[in-house]
């Protein structure tokens, strides 16, 4: 446990650590479990906690794995392949940072659940927590990339491209892996039933609905 804290501290202070993957998994599991605990642990509600616990690290790692091949080729094409291992270290460290920030915010989520049983506000609260963690992780990513950018300004462009690709994949993966919280009065499910929708199409439809109703 003590070693884990030391690794976490090293990640947060921007020092190299050998276990960022482990931090992503452990911290992701912890925040996921908190996220899925809106209805407590009674009956089959414990399954929702387990599902959400698995889904958060899965979301972070699968987004990374899906986005990496294109990022690798982009690095090669722009002639900075030699720096790729360093870039990857910065990216994984920022992922670990994101998971750590989420864990640090978990007590607030628990308090929110304890004081408000409203499902809609729980979604909004968790979205805010993820947004805060993403901003923190991005700051860590830019910090990790600083020496790379100083060496070659092309890394700045690549980092921007990475953030766009990662967000593009992450949003859809998050949408596909729903429910993370679980509607309190509905039965527990691993995934939402019905046809697989697309996050971006849903957003466009929502915006179009708002515009068409209020011209």
């Amino acid at each position: 446990m003590n070693r884990m804290f030391r690794h976490a501290d090293a990640v947060l202070r921007g020092r190299a650590t050998g276990r960022p993957w482990g931090l992503v998994v452990v911290c992701g599991l912890a925040y996921g479990a908190v996220m899925g605990s809106i209805s407590g642990l009674d009956g089959d509600r414990g399954w929702q906690v387990a599902f959400s616990a698995i889904k958060v690290p899965l979301l972070l790692l699968a987004t990374l794995v899906l986005s990496l091949p294109s990022y690798f080729v982009a690095n090669t094409l722009l002639g900075v392949r030699a720096d790729f291992s360093e870039a990857l270290r910065a990216i994984v460290a920022s992922q670990a940072g994101l998971a750590l920030i989420l864990v640090s915010l978990a007590p607030m989520t628990m308090v929110w659940y304890a004081t408000s049983a409203d499902y809609g506000s729980a979604i909004l609260f968790n979205a805010t927590m993820f947004a805060v963690a993403s901003v923190g992780a991005q700051a860590m990513l830019w910090r990790g990339y600083r020496p790379l950018i100083a060496r070659n300004p092309r890394h700045r462009l690549l980092l921007r491209a990475w953030i766009v690709i990662y967000a593009f994949v992450g949003i859809q993966l998050g949408w596909t892996l729903r429910p993370f919280i679980g509607v309190p009065d509905s039965p527990v499910t691993l995934f939402r039933g019905g046809p697989q929708e697309n996050a971006y199409v849903v957003i466009v439809r929502l915006v179009a609905g708002v515009i068409l109703r209020r011209p």
Partner: peptide, 26 residues
């Protein structure tokens, strides 16, 4: 080679969207 390598590298993202959406125009 550049075109096909970039396409193949974006393949996992396209495959993921292909299995997670039913919207054809998207």
């Amino acid at each position: 080679a550049i075109i096909v390598a970039v396409l193949a590298s974006l393949g996992p993202i396209v495959a993921f969207f292909s299995v997670s959406t039913t919207n054809y125009p998207f």
